[in-house]
Design a protein around this nucleic acid. Structure first.
Length: 588
RNA sequence: GGGGACGUGGUGCAGCUGGUUAGCACACCGGCCUGUCAAGCCGGAGGUCGCGGGUUCGACCCCCGUCGUCCCCGCCA
């Protein structure tokens, strides 16, 4: 028997046709007489009817069939009588009067039922091949495939070449921890799996390819999160002879195309922009969720005029006082407000001082420490209205922002400020090029160490490195960073200056990045690009709460593939070939 | 490295402030049933409650440890 078409593609227009469909048994309803079988394939469900009065041997066979057996059914498409039409199925007006039923494979009873509600993720991942049979996962991966096609078509039509780059590459300092791959032919030497194709794509620009893209797998050996996997996919793009605006424009058009064609959602262009400084000041985060406003406001100068010891001491030691207005917060119960205090403490705050706006003034058990004029100014600056609550933390700037940005997100959920279906894109621009790493006692790149400084601030690299701005940009959707990029250093002297500021020794630079510096010295065009987090974008488009829903075979939180049971130990023989001896017996 | 939640038959869940035979649904097995579509009806099998220790006359329920899963911080150029 040869399959005619996918099971759920048949309609009334096929009445009278003899067809064959293949798939899995979704359910069997055995009436003793008639037997109904729901046949499922990737397209959906088709009802088979086995009538003992017409095909006794088919009926006898059908009575053996169990859930998830693999069958092929041949028969005639017939109409269902009006009262037996199932309006919930696209194929609900028809069914197959089975003439031949072939059991292609049996199945043991399943560890879980395919189409029956919620499952623990552990169970799902352990039997991923069954989990993937579920309609939701079929839909997710079909969507992923379609989105990839949209991306490829868009970029190819915009004169990009798709070029693949190696997985076995060189471990470089800076950035995430590398996954290492030992070399057999060069004992004691290691490849690294790429954290991104960053340097390859820059080299491709030097090679004159001008416009490159790749749907690239990237590997980072860091701890996992709901939106982070050790291997993930980037839509990686690089262009020559462009500036920041060109990359931003192209990315906007790409995103618009993706959302339009895959989701039928319009992305308004140009996507709004926000400077890093403004993002941090107003939202306490470099990836603010702009589906709601709920801004933060600093009142350090006003707090200094108070007699409130907590604030004064924090300011004295370099802290700031910053807060958030909670619209209609006065409706919160005392317990709600206590919970809020506890919540900020979980985020790392020492405390959370709040006032209610009643009778046009700020009221609180700590109000007595504030001169009336100051209270009025605080209320005014916070934009607080009758019935609001305003709350403050007094912390070092970074901590204040961390706490308040988390609180802001939490309040938005609690106050129902997130409009379902709304997408808020924003570009965050003008990042600092460097930040100081207290642990390593040196400057490290905020983006990556190939990012160009802005022309205006480049001169400060030696004298005041933290003031240098980067020609970098992040694209943020609903509080998630979905991509980032920069204009790169195409001049070798710029790149050398940056390495020097990062505290890399000349010798190390030559060893680790010699090929890059040589390439830059041999006719590198100005270039820049971006990488979009494909799995993360998919997760958001699918409305999933985990990146794993967008990946066929994801790892769990400890980086374990529960289906394949990887990673695993290897034979001593394999280690010997690689010249590797384990330091200690691993725990089993 | 740290904080939090969870862990009960194959799966998803219930089990009150600890009290005698650990419930329910689906799946599974047997029987009945010719229009169902999460089919229905009757009957049956299946768990000692992740693991170890402790408290107690008595623990699924309390305590400690441990393992596992998830969420978060650190980390992720």
């Amino acid at each position: 028997m040869r399959r005619t078409a996918y099971a759920a593609t048949f309609r009334r227009s096929d009445l009278g046709r003899s067809i064959c469909a293949c798939g899995w048994v979704e359910s069997v309803r055995d009436h003793g007489g008639l037997i109904f079988i729901d046949l499922r394939d990737r397209s959906g469900i088709l009802q088979l009817v086995c009538d003992p009065s017409k095909q006794p041997e088919v009926h006898a066979l059908a009575s053996q069939v169990r859930d998830e057996w693999v069958v092929a059914a041949e028969g005639e498409i017939v109409a269902r009588s009006p009262e037996t039409v199932n309006p919930n199925l696209p194929t609900g007006e028809i069914e197959v009067a089975v003439r031949t039923l072939e059991i292609l494979n049996k199945s043991l009873p399943l560890p879980f039922q395919i189409s029956h509600g919620e499952l623990n993720e552990e169970v799902r991942l352990k039997h991923r091949f069954l989990d993937l049979r579920r309609p939701a996962m079929q839909r997710n991966l079909a969507f992923r495939s379609r989105l990839n096609a949209i991306v490829r078509n868009f970029l190819l039509e915009n004169d990009f070449y798709e070029i693949e780059t190696p997985f076995l590459t060189k471990s470089t300092p800076e950035g995430a921890r590398d996954f290492l791959v030992p070399s057999r032919l060069m004992p004691g030497q290691f490849y690294a799996l790429p954290q991104s194709p960053q340097l390859y794509k820059q080299i491709l620009m030097v090679a004159g390819f001008d416009r490159y893209f790749q749907v690239a797998r990237c590997f980072r050996d860091e701890d996992l999160r709901a939106d982070r996997q050790p291997e993930f996919t980037q839509i990686d793009i690089e262009m020559s002879f462009v500036d920041r605006g060109d990359v931003i424009d192209l990315t906007g058009r790409l995103l618009r195309d993706m959302f339009r064609k895959a989701l039928d959602v319009e992305v308004a262009l140009p996507i709004p922009t926000l400077s890093y400084d403004d993002a941090m000041a107003r939202y306490g985060s470099d990836k603010p969720d702009l589906r709601y406003d709920l801004p933060l406001t600093e009142i350090t100068d006003l707090a200094r005029e108070s007699k409130f010891g907590v604030f004064l001491r924090a300011i004295e030691s370099g802290g700031i006082v910053k807060g958030i207005r909670i619209p209609k917060g006065a409706t919160f119960s005392r317990k709600d407000l206590d919970d809020l205090v506890a919540e900020t403490q979980r985020y790392g705050a020492g405390g959370f001082a709040y006032f209610k706006v009643t009778g046009g003034a700020l009221a609180s058990n700590i109000a007595k420490y504030f001169p009336e004029g100051i209270l009025a100014k605080i209320r005014e600056r916070m934009g607080a209205e009758e019935g609001d609550v305003v709350g403050f933390v007094a912390e070092p700037p970074a901590a204040a922002n961390t706490v308040l940005s988390q609180l802001r997100a939490s309040l938005a959920r609690r106050l129902n400020l997130i409009v379902p279906g709304k997408n808020a894109f924003v570009w965050v621009l003008d990042f600092p090029l460097l930040e100081y790493d207290a642990g390593e006692k040196r400057h490290v790149a905020v983006h990556h160490p190939f990012t160009a400084a802005t022309a205006e601030t480049r001169a400060l690299l030696a004298s005041d490195p933290l003031k240098v701005k980067a020609q970098a940009y992040d694209i943020v959707l609903n509080g998630s960073e979905i991509g980032g990029g920069s204009i790169r250093n195409h001049r070798v002297d710029w790149q050398e200056d940056l390495f020097r500021t990062l505290g890399l020794e000349k010798e190390e630079v030559d060893q680790k990045f010699g090929f890059l510096l040589q390439a830059l010295a041999l006719g590198a065009p100005p270039h820049g690009g971006i990488a979009l987090g494909q799995d993360r974008i998919l997760m958001l488009m699918l409305g999933a709460d985990s990146i794993r829903e967008a990946i066929a075979f994801p790892k769990n939180q400890r980086g374990v593939d529960l289906c394949f049971d990887a990673p695993s130990g290897v034979d001593d023989r394999q280690l010997r070939d690689l010249g590797i001896q384990l330091r200690a017996k691993p725990k089993t």
